[in-house]
Amino acid sequence: MKSSTNQPVSNAPQDLGAKDPVVPVWLIVVCFLLLYWGAVYFDERGGWFSTQVYTPYVSTEQLNTIAAMQGPPDPRVLGAQVYGRTCIACHQGNAMGTPGTFPPLAGSDWVNEKEAGRMIRIVLHGFGGPGLVVKGQPFSTASVMTAFGSPPLVGLTDEEIAAVITYVRGNTEWGNHAAPVTPEQVKAIRDKTSSHSQSYTPAEIMTVNPAD
């Protein structure tokens, strides 16, 4: 028999002139069935592209339910998060601030006052101006602390302010050992000082009674 191995392989039109069989119907049906199964599977288990849903959980609603089941989170967590988002830029991660520009929060008597009235006002309405001395070091007049009391831009809610102040006041690693602060206290002071639109100056804040 003549060897077929040395013939040129033609892809010439006579090859293709014959009717080309179509894809078998059953294969198309299988393909669609599997696509349907795939769609259902992804709907059930895919978490709909959420970054937080991992197998075996199915949705962020389920994760929220579970989170709620564990009771309210440790307020220090919220405080640390707020600090890490907001305060860390100036006061630094170790709460030592920058000499001359941003005062430290670690071991500062401004932080460790028995009543937190001054601290709450500072966070709500901002702070800056001449004559600031913290732990014996003077700080410049040029830098002004933003007012964090008013949402939506840089503003924090009462819970967040209370959490971050509690976190800073109670952080023993930083040498602070003052009592925590509740959101109600923050709200009371916010209402009391609602008409105070300028940031506090050191001179002005010294006239405030912390227990107020």
Binding site: V23, L27, V30, C31, L34, L35, W37, G38, Y41, F42, R45, G46, G47, W48, F49, S50, T51, Q52, V53, Y54, T55, Y57, V58
Partner: peptide, 25 residues
């Protein structure tokens, strides 16, 4: 089982099962 959000392995699983049509064809 990958430690990534569920959508990535789900899509991959569906695709892998679908490759059976390649083998069949």
């Amino acid at each position: 089982t990958a430690p990534v959000p569920a959508w990535i392995p789900s899509l991959s699983t569906v695709a892998t099962v679908l490759t059976v049509v390649t083998a069949l064809s």
